[in-house]
């Protein structure tokens, strides 16, 4: 049974690649700088956020092992992948309705390719991070290799959440507006442009139970030459895989009804 699914996926790999390409191509079509925007945009927002939070609000993070700008950049890159990945995946089924109505293609390919193409853009934008790290004089260390773990996990987390959202979105459009608010909440509990040192009690737990925060924290640790937080990473891993499993579960349960609602 599992073999059949894997075989099917392999036979559709060309389509997956083509859909990923389509996403990237169409995103930057008709802009002069094209995919360069995936590099420019994070740098500009990093600059803005750094100026706002250090100069205007006079808040420099203490006790950090990396420059504050880098701290912000990591958080912003990871959060914006999660946010754009889940949002495009959420709309994937509805956006591809004309195709779904006419030709048979395994439907999970649509949220999967959406998550994948935003992931590719995310990986490209990581060039910024390495560039910034070099300029800001961050010393390379073996700990940086750890970054692969949160990098992989964030893909699964985004994909799982995207599958759930895309299923729900077919039946209830409201989720698009709800998710807008929820992702804002997730943003503030991911500590992108501040540290969690000032918080305690339940406020602190809000961060600690946010798997996205745990992933961002892991990535930052890797760049500040520190080992990963084992329990935090384990929690994020379990959470990510659980969402993928749950995502596939409700997607498969409901996918035959999609066609009647799009």
């Amino acid at each position: 049974m599992r073999n059949v699914y894997i075989q099917k996926f392999i036979s559709y790999r060309h389509l997956t690649v083509e859909l990923v390409k389509k996403g990237i191509k169409l995103k930057y079509r008709r802009s002069y700088l094209g995919i360069l925007w995936s590099l420019i945009e994070p740098l500009l927002t990093m600059a803005v956020l750094t100026v706002v939070f250090t100069k205007l609000l006079g808040r420099d993070a203490q006790g950090l092992h990396i420059p504050f700008a880098l701290y912000i950049l990591i958080g912003r890159l990871m959060y914006s992948y999660f946010s754009s990945g889940t949002k495009t995946a959420m709309r994937a089924i509805r956006a591809n309705a004309p195709m779904i109505k006419k030709v048979y293609v395994p439907k999970y390919l649509y949220p999967l390719s959406s998550t994948l193409y935003t992931y590719v853009i995310f990986l490209i934008s990581l060039i910024d991070l390495f560039g910034a790290a070099i300029i800001m004089g961050v010393k390379p260390s073996w700990y940086m290799l750890q970054a692969i773990i949160p990098l992989v996990l964030i893909f699964f987390l985004t994909f799982g959440v995207g599958m759930i959202l895309s299923t729900v979105d077919v039946f209830f459009r409201d989720v698009e507006y709800i998710w807008e608010v929820v992702s804002m909440l997730i943003m503030y509990t991911s500590a992108i442009f501040y540290t969690i040192n000032r918080f305690e009690g339940w406020m602190l737990n809000l961060f600690k139970f946010n798997p996205l925060y745990r992933l961002i924290e892991g990535f930052r640790d890797s760049f500040s030459g520190q080992p990963l937080h084992p329990y935090g990473m384990l929690y994020a891993a379990l959470f990510s895989f659980a969402t993928v499993i749950f995502g596939f579960f409700i997607f498969y349960k409901k996918q035959d009804d999609f066609i009647l609602h799009i």
């Binding site: 036979s11 060309h14 389509k22 004309p98 195709m99 006419k102 030709v103």
Partner: peptide, 29 residues
């Protein structure tokens, strides 16, 4: 299946790009 020709095309894509998109939808490499 040729159900309504051109289903599965992307409107923003050129004809040439759609050959690859639709072709892979039909399962060609």
């Amino acid at each position: 299946p040729l159900l309504e020709l051109g289903a599965g095309f992307d409107r923003m894509y050129t004809g040439g790009e759609n050959i690859f998109l639709y072709g892979t939808v039909l399962g060609y490499s």
